[in-house]
């Protein structure tokens, strides 16, 4: 049976671990504007990235956006997931497909749609101006607001489907029993549904957090040139600056921060709800 994992492991080794080892080696090289990079074994790039306030700000901003989006996505997804998980209608398959539908549209195409909505002369501003709610067009494009909305739209289906699968497995009898004992709707949610949904909350949150940390297209297209997140910063170093060593260093820092938060979150969830 163990042999069944061999093909997948080989693929990961060849296509992920191999290039990562190469990237790590590149991160220890030094940048040269006309030779691209000079062979070296120096931690200089890591020291620069860790101590430069510019990169510190980008890491903090990326973490902040990722945590905020994960939390908002969880709050928005839970009611929809509960509805989907408890659904017994013959339309359930259709509802699942409808939830998945946004994932059929690429990030760039979706962001282009948001751009048309959020622009100064876009639909949102046109409606607000027509209705007299605002007298001047709102600045939505190229702000963190636009990025948060754009990211949530991307990751919401992942959270809904992960939560719905777990909620579906919680026996409905438990809710009935709690209601029979006089628990209110909120109390049933808080004391029964939520604790039993923790595996789904943990899995969904980690999945969404990792996706948010690595956001590229949404951050670039909706955040604009002044908005900073790690994935666009990595791209900038590789492609705009031709600084592969620094690009590789930032990529590893992004990976490290994401892993630390993911592992910390998983352990915290497991400890908090191990009796659940």
């Amino acid at each position: 049976m163990a042999l069944l994992v061999v093909p997948a492991c080989l693929l990961v080794l060849a296509l992920l671990v191999g290039p990562m080892i190469l990237m790590f080696r590149i991160s220890l090289n030094q940048f040269h504007p006309t030779q691209m990079m000079v062979q070296a074994l120096s931690p200089e790039n890591y020291i620069k990235a860790a101590t430069d306030p510019y990169y510190q700000q980008i890491i903090v901003a990326t973490l902040g956006i990722a945590l905020l989006c994960t939390l908002l996505t969880l709050v928005l997804a839970f009611p929809a997931a509960y509805w989907l998980g408890r659904m017994e209608s013959r339309w359930k398959s259709l509802a699942v497909i409808a939830t998945l539908f946004p994932l059929l549209v690429g990030n760039v195409v979706r962001s282009a749609g948001w751009m048309a909505l959020f622009a100064r002369g876009g639909l949102v501003n046109l409606v607000l101006l027509k209705l007299g709610i605002t007298s001047e067009p709102l600045e939505i494009m190229y702000t963190p607001k636009a990025v948060v909305i754009g990211i949530i739209a991307v990751v919401l289906p992942y959270m809904i489907l992960t939560l719905a699968a777990v909620i579906e497995s919680i026996p409905r009898d438990l809710e009935d029993a709690a209601a029979n004992l006089g628990a209110s709707g909120f109390r049933i949610f808080w004391r029964v549904i939520l604790p039993l949904s923790v595996p789904g909350v943990a899995a969904g949150s980690i999945l969404v957090f990792v996706l948010c940390m690595n956001t590229y297209a949404t951050a670039v297209l909706l955040g604009g040139p002044r908005f900073k997140m790690m994935a666009p910063a990595v791209y900038d170093q590789f492609v705009r600056g031709n600084n592969w060593p620094m690009g590789a260093t930032l990529a590893f820092m992004l990976l490290a921060v994401t892993m630390v938060f993911t592992v910390f979150g998983s352990v915290a969830f497991a400890r908090r709800y191990k009796t659940a």
């Binding site: 940048f31 504007p33 006309t34 510019y54 705009r240 600056g241 600084n243």
Partner: peptide, 10 residues
Amino acid sequence: AAARTQRTQD
């Protein structure tokens, strides 16, 4: 310009 490229970008 080439020698200064990193400073300009930074």
